[in-house]
Amino acid sequence: MSVLEIKDLHVSVETDQGTKQILRGVDLTINEGEIHAIMGPNGSGKSTLAYTIAGHPKYHVESGSILLDGAEVLKMTVDARARAGLFLAMQYPVEIPGVTVTNFLRTAKTAIEGEAPPIRTWIKDVRQAMTDLRMDKAFAERNVNEGFSGGEKKRNEILQLELLKPKFAVLDETDSGLDVDALKIVSEGVNRAKANTGLGLLLITHYTRILRYIHPDFVHVFVNGRIAEQGGPELADRLEDEGYDRFLVPSNVG
């Protein structure tokens, strides 16, 4: 059974105003098959945690560690992390000019598996996943994220989640900017991925509405760069009613 452990993680970022401390000692353990929701107000460092796990060069790890089945993730390159089984569904996926979705998916799958997927089953899998996500066939020949609407970009992220089959996925505000229909489709995709592969999920969100469709086992409230409170799904309901006010203390994180 796989496990992702985050231990006493401190992360800073360089800004025009100098070094800014964002994560201040995050501890979190996610087992395969578990869904963890991280909720918190804007600027609390939720996305920083997501990007640090994926290895974005902008974020500087001051101390702490991230272990995937005991292996130090922080020592791995971005692509090595993905090959080790980590996946980040991005809040703002970028456009990749000149690279079609088909070509991109096949290249990524080949990189992660270490060999090209068998052509016939692969094409079938891609088609099925696109149909499930209500993505038009024409998507396959469009350039990655180029001219995609917000909802299309998110669906494209979940398409990759379903096809690349990671051990752990971090979903960074996947619900933002989605109308209720798109939110349902995307949530179904995430639930399907979990049912098929039993992956562990770290769901980062500001609002509780995605939790109506994806049911977390654990909820962590993130404030000022660390986990301020944790509990079961009932904690999300309480946040829905009360908001984040009771956690908000003066801080220097926007």
């Binding site: 290895g55 993905a82 996946f87 991109f104 990524a108 992660i112």
Partner: peptide, 14 residues
């Protein structure tokens, strides 16, 4: 760099 990060985050080398 953001495009590179995106592709690398899917396992593709630089």
């Amino acid at each position: 760099d953001e495009q590179l990060f995106y592709l690398q985050a899917r396992g593709i080398t630089e």
